[in-house]
Simulated scan of single mutants.
Amino acid sequence: MTVYFIGAGPGAPDLITVRGLKLIQRCPMCLYAGSLVPEAIVAEAPKDAVVKDTAPMHLDEIIEDIKIAHERGEDVARVHSGDPSIYGAIAEQIRRLRALDIPFEVVPGVPAFAAAAAALGAELTVPGIAQTIILTRTSMKSSAMPERESLAILGQSGATLAIHLSVRNIPHVERELTPHYGPDCPVVVAYRVGWPDQMFIRGTLSDIRQKVRAEKITRTALILVGPAIAPQEFEDSRLYDADFSHILRFQAKEKANEAK
């Protein structure tokens, strides 16, 4: 018996991994985060499977269901949105499973920041502009942020920021980041990425607050900040530069010469 923590991806049912989908299709129990996991994904569970939305459940109740499955020798598909390693609340579940000596495995999924970048047709690491992505959030109702991870500190890096769970805190985002990125820095608020009603609000640090307020977005949104989101001019990467040699290109040239 194994508990599989499965990343269902950002919303589109076909963005789940093949491995994750196959596990859902065969596990006798499926526990899923109903507020963010599409019903089409859990509809793939066996017809006689126990399928439960864990959104209204607390941790003890979830672990109790897993214990019941463990006693029966039945695998469990524990389905989370996005990728379970990012704000997935799996650490406390894993701690309980280890204490109970219940085997588990984590199956990665497509994270929201990657899906947002894909939908925008953007690269978040643009040569000469930004080569680092920071995934973070701000303090609201959930657990507090460590002081060393404040936006004021992270913003000093100039990296591309993917700020989760913070759209209602956007005035704070603007206030903390403007001194480091400037008021004209590009910002995109990605709402419900991968869902049929997805929306992208484009702006700058100086006007994004008003634009988000006009659309009445208060949850389920990711904030992307940084010049790499809408670069004006940038250098080509060295990867495909004709004058740049690396081992694979060198080997290809050798093979071509041998074929002559």
Rank of each mutant, 00 (worst) to 15 (best):
Met1Thr: 03
Ile6Tyr: 01
Gly7Glu: 06
Ala8Gln: 08
Asp14Asn: 13
Leu15Ser: 04
Ile16Met: 03
Gly20Trp: 00
Leu21Gln: 01
Leu21Pro: 00
Met29Cys: 12
Leu31Cys: 11
Ala40Arg: 14
Ile41Val: 14
Glu44Phe: 00
Ala45Arg: 07
Pro46Thr: 13
Asp48Leu: 07
Ala49Asp: 03
Val50Phe: 14
Lys52Asn: 05
Asp53His: 04
His58Trp: 06
Leu59Asn: 07
Glu61Gln: 15
Lys67Ile: 09
Ile68Met: 05
Ile68Asp: 08
Ala69Met: 02
Glu74Trp: 11
His80Trp: 04
His80Leu: 08
Ser81Gln: 09
Gly82Cys: 12
Asp83Leu: 14
Gly88Lys: 12
Ala89Ile: 04
Ile90His: 05
Ala91Trp: 00
Ile94Ala: 08
Leu97Asn: 02
Phe104Asp: 07
Phe104Glu: 09
Val107Trp: 00
Gly109Ser: 12
Val110Met: 14
Phe113Ser: 00
Leu120Met: 15
Gly121Lys: 06
Ala122Gly: 05
Ala122His: 04
Thr125Gly: 07
Val126Gln: 05
Gly128Ile: 11
Thr132Asn: 12
Ile133Asp: 02
Thr138Met: 08
Thr138Ser: 11
Ser143Asn: 10
Ser143Arg: 15
Ala144Ser: 13
Arg148Asn: 12
Gly158His: 10
Ala159Cys: 08
Ala162Val: 03
Ala162Pro: 04
Ala162Cys: 12
Ile163Asn: 08
Val167Met: 08
His172Gln: 14
Glu176Lys: 10
Thr178Lys: 11
Pro179Lys: 09
Gly182Ala: 09
Pro183Arg: 09
Asp184Asn: 13
Pro186Lys: 08
Ala190Asn: 08
Ala190Gly: 07
Arg192Thr: 01
Gln198Lys: 06
Ile201His: 04
Leu205Tyr: 05
Ile208Met: 07
Arg209Thr: 13
Val212Gly: 09
Glu215Arg: 15
Ile217Leu: 09
Thr220Ser: 15
Ala221Trp: 01
Ala221Thr: 01
Ile223Met: 10
Leu224Gly: 06
Val225Gln: 06
Ile229Tyr: 01
Pro231Met: 09
Glu235Ser: 14
Asp236Val: 00
Arg238Tyr: 13
Arg238Ser: 07
Tyr240Phe: 13
Tyr240Cys: 05
Ala242Asp: 12
His246Glu: 07
Ile247Asp: 08
Ile247Asn: 06
Leu248Ser: 10
Phe250Lys: 13
Gln251Lys: 14
Ala252Asn: 08
Glu258Ile: 01
